[in-house]
């Protein structure tokens, strides 16, 4: 899987999204940076609650209000900072430049409208044309995601469809305005294994056809290996390791990445029991000082009381861990 060489279309610098409750501040995303090239797939991996989804919502500026706020950083899309845009301008970014596929197909379609209505609603945003043409477009976008007999499907309500079918429709909606970037937030976790594979293949096909960039959020390294060019491993609001899939799989540097890798069952090995990381991820409103993984880390030393800087391992592969410091 060669690293894509397209131009950088999205650049995120030091993004911080905090949640304010009555008594404390939850730092859900605390200073992450990454970039995305045209046509490539970036995986964001981590346990649930590590800030993956909030990162995605921050890119769309849809962090739950009023508790959540983006407090710092920049999100440069084609060089323009999304955080400086007005709400109106932002609306034209959503769906048309960056779109997203949500986790649970069962609940991401509005139960009181039929599929056609929901598809045509987004199509109508850019295509100011009659119902007939919109209907044709809707049929085509369903066909693009391999839905059989799309004309009839458009009349259906969500509760009349299977989970896999719904997720295709959600995909069709996300893709309908031909965005440059699709964020897929664990799009297959709620699906059966066979359907999962179909869906992932579909995403790849579409990417090959349109050249869009995908940010793939998952906790499953197996999916990462299948889908992604590069990976960012997130832990408690930070990106702790970042590199190409090959680098990360062959040479994981952060103990958390290593632990995650070990927890993936490998086909060729006979496994007695699944490896799991000891302890729980920290509560985001009660974070330890210093390295956030230290309490669960087998290598932790006194030095880990201080948060490590980002060390370059090689071109395009970085990690936040003191073990990479020459003085370790």
């Amino acid at each position: 899987m060669a690293t894509a060489q397209g131009e950088v279309i999205l650049e995120v610098n030091d993004l911080r999204t905090y949640f304010y409750t009555r008594t404390s501040v939850v730092k859900a995303v605390d200073g992450i940076s990454f970039n995305l090239r045209q046509g490539e797939t970036l995986g964001i991996v981590g346990e649930s609650g590590c800030g993956k989804t909030i990162t995605a919502l921050s890119l769309l500026r849809l962090v739950p209000k009023p508790a959540g706020r983006i407090v710092g950083g920049e999100i440069l899309l084609h060089g323009e900072d999304l955080l400086q845009k007005s709400e109106d301008e932002m609306r034209r970014v959503r769906g048309q430049k960056i779109s997203m596929i949500l986790q649970d197909p069962q609940t991401s379609l509005n139960p009181v409208f039929n599929i056609g209505n929901q598809l045509m609603e987004s199509l109508a945003l850019t295509h100011k044309e009659g119902r007939k043409n919109l209907f044709q477009r809707a049929v085509e976008s369903l066909r693009d995601v391999n839905v059989a007999a799309p004309e009839r499907r458009l009349e259906d309500f969500p509760h009349q469809m299977s989970g896999g079918m719904k997720q295709r429709v959600v995909g069709a909606i996300a893709m309908s305005l031909e965005p440059d970037i699709i964020i897929a937030d664990e799009p297959t976790t709620a699906l059966d294994v066979t359907i999962q594979l179909q869906y992932l293949r579909l995403l790849k096909d579409i990417q090959a056809r349109t050249g869009l960039a995908i940010i793939f959020i998952t906790h499953d390294f197996g999916v990462v290996a299948r889908m992604c060019d590069r990976v960012a491993v997130m832990y408690a609001g930070h990106i702790v390791e970042h590199g190409s899939v090959r680098d990360l799989f062959n040479d994981p540097q952060h103990p958390y990445t290593q632990a995650l890798m070990d927890s993936v069952p490998k086909l060729e090995e006979k496994v007695d029991r699944l490896y799991s990381i000891e302890g729980q991820p920290p509560l985001l409103w009660d974070l330890p000082e210093g390295c956030l993984f230290a309490p669960r880390c087998p290598h932790a030393r006194d030095k880990c009381q201080e948060y490590p800087p980002t060390f370059d391992i090689k071109e395009g592969h970085t990690a936040d861990c003191w073990r990479l410091d020459p003085s370790w």
Binding site: Y20, R22, T23, S24, V25, K27, D30, P66, W285, D286, L287, P288, E289, G290, L292, Y307
Partner: peptide
């Protein structure tokens, strides 16, 4: 990285 205990007049209070 740590819990920041909000002072008495915090974010909620700045709401309309």
């Amino acid at each position: 990285m740590t819990v920041v205990a909000l002072p008495k007049r915090g974010f909620i209070d700045s709401l309309p």
